[in-house]
Design a protein around this nucleic acid. Sequence first.
DNA 1: GATGAATGAGGCTTCATTCAT
DNA 2: AATGAATGAAGCCTCATTCAT
Lengths: 222, 222, 222, 222
Amino acid sequence: MRQTKKSGDRFAKEPKQTRSRESLERLLTSAAKLLTEKKYSDFTLQEVSKVSNVSIGSIYNRFKGKDDLVRQIQQREVERMDIDSAVMINNLRRQQLPLRQLMPAVVHGFAEFLRKYRGILRALMEIAIVDEVVADTGRKHSVQNIGDYEKLLLECRDEITQPNPERAVNFVFRLVYASLSRYLGLGTVDESLEEGDWETLLDDLSDVSLHYLLGNPDQIRE
Amino acid sequence: MRQTKKSGDRFAKEPKQTRSRESLERLLTSAAKLLTEKKYSDFTLQEVSKVSNVSIGSIYNRFKGKDDLVRQIQQREVERMDIDSAVMINNLRRQQLPLRQLMPAVVHGFAEFLRKYRGILRALMEIAIVDEVVADTGRKHSVQNIGDYEKLLLECRDEITQPNPERAVNFVFRLVYASLSRYLGLGTVDESLEEGDWETLLDDLSDVSLHYLLGNPDQIRE
Amino acid sequence: MRQTKKSGDRFAKEPKQTRSRESLERLLTSAAKLLTEKKYSDFTLQEVSKVSNVSIGSIYNRFKGKDDLVRQIQQREVERMDIDSAVMINNLRRQQLPLRQLMPAVVHGFAEFLRKYRGILRALMEIAIVDEVVADTGRKHSVQNIGDYEKLLLECRDEITQPNPERAVNFVFRLVYASLSRYLGLGTVDESLEEGDWETLLDDLSDVSLHYLLGNPDQIRE
Amino acid sequence: MRQTKKSGDRFAKEPKQTRSRESLERLLTSAAKLLTEKKYSDFTLQEVSKVSNVSIGSIYNRFKGKDDLVRQIQQREVERMDIDSAVMINNLRRQQLPLRQLMPAVVHGFAEFLRKYRGILRALMEIAIVDEVVADTGRKHSVQNIGDYEKLLLECRDEITQPNPERAVNFVFRLVYASLSRYLGLGTVDESLEEGDWETLLDDLSDVSLHYLLGNPDQIRE
DNA sequence: GATGAATGAGGCTTCATTCAT
DNA sequence: AATGAATGAAGCCTCATTCAT
């Protein structure tokens, strides 16, 4: 079977690259999966090797060590999140909603976002305790992400009754973030985890946010 | 292959001899201290032994193993917190404050409480990820503690405009808890940690809570 | 990225119990033996553990690591050598020999000394390349040892015809040292090793030394 | 396996051979350089491949393994040294110097020679410990090289007062060799390395040699 | 041939737990 | 009871060598 080399050229170097690519993909995927399933101190390269069917040596051919692997995983995941987040924010912005509708939409959107990535986020937060690089990357990503949401909410600044809308929006968003994180067990499992209903929580968060942003300050003075 | 550890509520033997008591005391104190200072994976019995001047053998005479030691430490700390908490709540109750003054007082009181125990709480939360017994104990303690605060707030139920005061108070308190935990880095370090001012946060939390509890539901409807 | 290792003067714990003492003894002896029999890069703790019947863990209970073990071995051997050397030098000094008899005696004595310790010396010299602490200790010991021999020879300074007896003695002793080291393969095996006769070498070294120390400088000028 | 071996059309391979030659050259040169810069246990094919820009696979196509590569390097270097040495010896021979001038000239020449090749010599001596083939080659080369110097010196045999000029010259040359090697750190670093002055050492070595070769044997008898 | 990804044995080290004294 | 030496499984990482492309 003689083949003309014309069409074949495209694939000339493909096979090698493909095999490599595949095993790298397997490696990163398995590693990310293990990371989300375990405590970091139980996350071992031996198991990554076993589960991904990539030898220890190969892991070390591609990454400088355990730290490096974890950081690359973080990069990959953060990039995914950024895209996801950007798409969602853009969709919300297009709708030009009033705050009363935007706030619940933002809460739901952000909540879904966190829920989708809770596994890897929890893992990365744990690692951030001991790996300053992971901490930095996470911090930068988070600040940017939160900033985007705040900018979106501030497009309704005229509706906000609080004297300092920026501050108010920032505070409210942190409130939401903290509550959701806690519910999802980001930043560690803790005692009150998962009690209550997710949808109810989201509604309550929207409510409380609107009460604060749209409220009459006199109400809470004597 | 590590699973969350189950089973096992036992008590350390309570030696009546003074020397024994002292060394047990030294042991628990040093261990608790180390626990708050380190990641759990860096918390080793070897170091506990060295720092507390209690031999490894003695540790194993008193405790079944590392897990058991940690659980006993948790017991001890939780009891302390319970007392602390009870005293504070009682003091607040006595004053019979209206909600507008009670809420800030509760927020400040609870905040100080969390701040005081943040070290050990962070450690225990980390351990709770892998030790089901620690998780359970923490959960129970937390539920009870939170319940006490809620009961206190509900003594002002007549002032609350939300249709379901119990639910509203419960939600608000969780909001406060989540925000404070996040600020204090309980449940792991994360990206937005420690930015902003503590006192401002407390005031904002009081404000937002009052806006919610005392607000007019119509405000947030169209 | 390997650097010469610095720092570190610590001591192995000195167990008082017999069993402990014995196993430490077994450990050090086996380790020293293996060290003399192998290239340093083939000297592994696993084998030390196997040969000495002391578990890896025990090795790490007594020594901070491989480097520390090696340094402790050096200490032990150097102390032995110092004693050996001091005794021999003292014996020679007592006899108050004239240079013509002292020189051969010194050469023979020093030669025997080196021969006795050639194994461990060769090993330590190899290690000195990568471990600055071992290098320092070796250097200090060597300088002191050589100094003692030179002082002994200088007690015959009146017989020496060279204008600067100190310099001459120092040079001659280095000559002897270099030749013996080479013969014994200290400072690595090399190509001409072991050819020729040991006794003849010693006699020749004595001769050449005496020719130099007692010679007439005019002989070598035109 | 369908190779028809004809003698024709071999020119087609010329360019490839050139390229091959070049990469072999690069390989050997880089490898020799790395060898002189590192401990043998830090000399890895991985790094040779990287530095020389020759793939691991190619290295294994050309050499049977690490040992073989090292042996080929030795061959190449030894040939270079032989030429260098031969040229120098021939130059000295032409001048027909008397021993009093020849000896210093030989010492200086040989010293420069060792100094020039100290890097690779040190590396090869280290390898010789574990590779008998390298040891053999080194030994043969060394014996031949030393022999040449001795023959040169023996052209002045009439001036030598020692009863057995061959033996005396042989001994003296080994003395010189040993001292220079030690000074240059060939055959490993050791404790007294590099102290003192190079030029002074060379002069002293010439002096001591002449004292021995031209001395009066009676001087050292009673 | 050339390439370099893949392999895995083997080295160092840590630490929970056991056990002789 | 107290002590702490002893144990060894398990983790990280390196590098000579193999093998598919």
